[in-house]
């Protein structure tokens, strides 16, 4: 474990908690893409299949359970508990355009042609594009509540910190996970435009992010 990966995991946890609390306390999921949240729940499900078969550490197990529980709870809030506030007209990204290529690529480019490894690879590729429905929804509505932008900031920051973690592990352990690194770079690039808007608009104190 190194400080970059720890900060990355904390940033990821903060993002997921911010979103869950925003929906739970405001009793509304306006402006939130339910499709992205379903994709994230699928990412955790296909990545953490080894939750019961291999024990890494208490930390690893607890974080996996927390991510799984919170992501499914968020999907429940959006599609069941507060479904009347779900803006399905704006959440129109065709996720099949993500799932099919990601599934195909995970069969082509993986470390081992075994179910666990292919599903893990699928989760890595899927995570790099899972935020696209949410970013697409914001460009479509032209705005986002500031709490939603804070969620996106910490979510984007988490994988950027993981990139630093991989640089660190390469230099200290010679560890290099090509599939995770390439996907992580792609994932972080998708946030760059948002990061610019977040720094120049939201941090200037605007109550919400409105796209130019």
């Amino acid at each position: 474990m190194n400080v970059f990966r720890l900060l990355g995991d904390v940033s990821h946890l903060v993002a997921i908690i911010i979103l869950f609390l925003k929906i739970f306390r405001s009793k509304s999921c306006a402006g939130i893409s339910g499709k992205s949240q379903v994709l994230f729940a699928l990412v955790f499900t296909t990545r953490y299949l080894d939750l019961f078969t291999s024990f890494i550490s208490i930390y690893n197990t607890v974080m996996k359970v927390v991510f799984l529980v919170l992501s499914y709870a968020t999907v429940y809030l959006i599609y069941l508990r507060f479904r009347s506030s779900y803006d399905s007209e704006s959440d129109t990204f065709r996720v099949e355009f993500l799932l099919v290529p990601v599934a195909g690529l995970s069969f082509l480019e993986n470390y081992d042609f075994t179910p666990i490894e292919i599903l893990w690879t699928f989760s890595i590729y899927l995570e790099s594009v899972a935020i696209l429905p949410q970013l697409f929804m914001i460009t479509k509505t032209g705005e986002a509540e500031s709490i939603t932008t804070h969620y996106l900031f910490f979510l984007g920051l988490y994988r950027a910190l993981y990139l630093a973690n991989w640089v660190w592990r390469y230099h200290t352990e010679g560890f290099f996970d090509q599939i995770a690194v390439v996907s992580g770079v792609v994932q972080t690039i998708f946030y760059c435009d948002f990061f610019y808007l977040y720094v120049t608009k939201v941090l200037k104190g605007n109550s919400k992010l409105t796209l130019p």
């Binding site: 474990m1 990966r5 995991d9 990821h12 080894d50 291999s54 890494i56 550490s57 690893n60 974080m63 996996k64 991510f67 993986n110 470390y111 081992d112 490894e117 893990w120 993981y162 973690n165 560890f175 290099f176 996970d177 090509q178 599939i179 995770a180």
Partner: peptide, 10 residues
């Protein structure tokens, strides 16, 4: 590809 995964990352 040889499998470098240490499976310790979330």
């Amino acid at each position: 590809m040889d499998n470098p995964r240490k499976k310790d990352e979330l």
